[in-house]
Design a protein around this nucleic acid. Sequence first.
DNA 1: CTGAAAGCGCTTACAG
DNA 2: CTGAAAGCGCTTACAG
Lengths: 356, 356
Amino acid sequence: MASIKDVAGQAGVSVATVSRVLNDHPSVSADARARVLAAVESLGYRRNAVARSLRTDQTHTLGLVISDVMNPYFTELARSVEEEARALGYSVIIGNADERPDLQDHHVRNLLDRRIDGLLVSPTDGGSPLMLDAVRAGTPMVFVDRWIPGVEVPVVRADGLAAVRDLVAHLHGLGHRRLAIIAGPAATTTGQERVTAFREALHAYGLDLPEVYIGQGDFQAASGRRVTEGFLDLPEPPEVVFATDNLMALGALDAIRARGLRVPEDIALAAFDDIPWFVHTDPPITAIAQPTGELGRAAVRALVDRIEGRTPESVTLPARLVVRRSCGEPAEPPASPEPPPAQSPAVRSPVRRSQP
Amino acid sequence: MASIKDVAGQAGVSVATVSRVLNDHPSVSADARARVLAAVESLGYRRNAVARSLRTDQTHTLGLVISDVMNPYFTELARSVEEEARALGYSVIIGNADERPDLQDHHVRNLLDRRIDGLLVSPTDGGSPLMLDAVRAGTPMVFVDRWIPGVEVPVVRADGLAAVRDLVAHLHGLGHRRLAIIAGPAATTTGQERVTAFREALHAYGLDLPEVYIGQGDFQAASGRRVTEGFLDLPEPPEVVFATDNLMALGALDAIRARGLRVPEDIALAAFDDIPWFVHTDPPITAIAQPTGELGRAAVRALVDRIEGRTPESVTLPARLVVRRSCGEPAEPPASPEPPPAQSPAVRSPVRRSQP
DNA sequence: CTGAAAGCGCTTACAG
DNA sequence: CTGAAAGCGCTTACAG
């Protein structure tokens, strides 16, 4: 592949001059510039980013380590991250941890070796020595969605507290009293927070969250299936299952369907994270929606701020409840024989509901 | 960040020796090795992959340019690609073209500049000059899923012909005669092939595929919605809509639902590409499933073969029909005069069907 | 087994 | 405005 030296030779100038026109440096004569450009064209020259990075000590690349690409929530997050990064002149390399700490470390190591300018991570665990070292070593870093407590790194995330409270209010209003939750890994902040928020919201209604109604999942579909089967085997099964991510909700649906039970008649289902398919499942699933695109963009901005010497800020955006039919229809008609605004006519028109 | 020079200093050896132990070169004394390793540890040294790549002229990185990460089919493809690549000692950088040729070129350019060792692409169009140049320049390349006719590059893809024929047989058996298709971009091979396969299968049953029943989509949900609305506005709407990817099927569902119509009673729906959610949509959707993971892995193997000097081979794997309920119930019970094995009893047990 | 040295392809003060 | 030269952090023949 042609190098800058070849271009210089062809254009009859020094490599310094070639470099200058390539980098839009002002002090280059129009004539030299023209000759260089012509040589670039005729040689099909492409700048070697590897050499450039070595010399300038910047790769203009961001690393993104997410817990699971197959989870539509993270897919969307990754997409918005790449978009914003591109807009700011960076590319991004995605590392998929698949909810495995060892894989997460593999990717962090790889990304660090590649000298990415900064790292965006949604930690799968409480923080490996490697990750902690990276922070200590001064690697520009920002946490998205999940974070590691006690580590001095900006966090960009959604606060689901209010939405979980709304959800519990909705469920309580529907007459449900035995509510169960499929939790995420205790080592993740989202895994813990969602359970805590749920428990507190229940307490506000004088309800308890007994241990047997807390199933330990790992944010993957199979665990949602397993936990739900356990719930259904209970002498007194819950009336509602709240899956703390969309994949576990899928698993829960699988399990419920496999027993020949119906949602919401036999058991209600709600999920954290909203995805387009929830509008079309049978029944449409009530979910807590995060401002995913916003989160991704804000995270990139924070990281780039940090990289470029500005002061990055943590960002917390609210999540919101999207009521559909998987928890049952409201018993009380508002104002008239029918359902209240939030879960009324629009319920039947899911398309509109999911795109407010 | 500590460099190899720092390590050499600390260990009291030359940088050459450090490099040798780092690369497991045999001729290093046990003593030197130990001192180097100790220095690496105490300094927290991490090899600079950028410098290494510049020197060795290989990045051990594969580029993957896909048409749309948000499409679960491609997400899974990307995942399997990364897995196989990792197993073979490569990392992968994903470029999301979002079905936009300009974005596709952006990523190809970026990847080429980064000197990736090889490129895996699922082309969004018929081949930009940039892409063609890259092939001509000898960039190791393999096409996955879609390809560019006339270009000498191995192709790894699924053949949907037989599955489309099975689908049409299924639809015909259900009594449907007016079948419409939502096509993908004509510039993509999959966009064309699926229409052709569908038309030919229809002919085999003496059915026609009139122009008005061919809707031009772009593999994105919005186009599925738009095209389906057009179908529904026809004086004589089709009895079946076959969406040639899962996102357009989602859009079609949206459009059908918005009119208050039911699937399959008012209109039947089938899709190309199967995804886990199709089991739980209302109704479960009949789809053509590709061996996605296999495709991703085979593509990586072909590309790495090419990179490492072996002769890569094109691979074509069969897709298969997965019958669910979105096209209607078989009129006749199996075992008797009607449906062939492919669409019999299991139809009622979608969970099992999707996980054979 | 070990080290000095060249060189990968760039960028960037420094002189002129 | 332009070029010679140093140097980024590695690897790898070449001598010894």
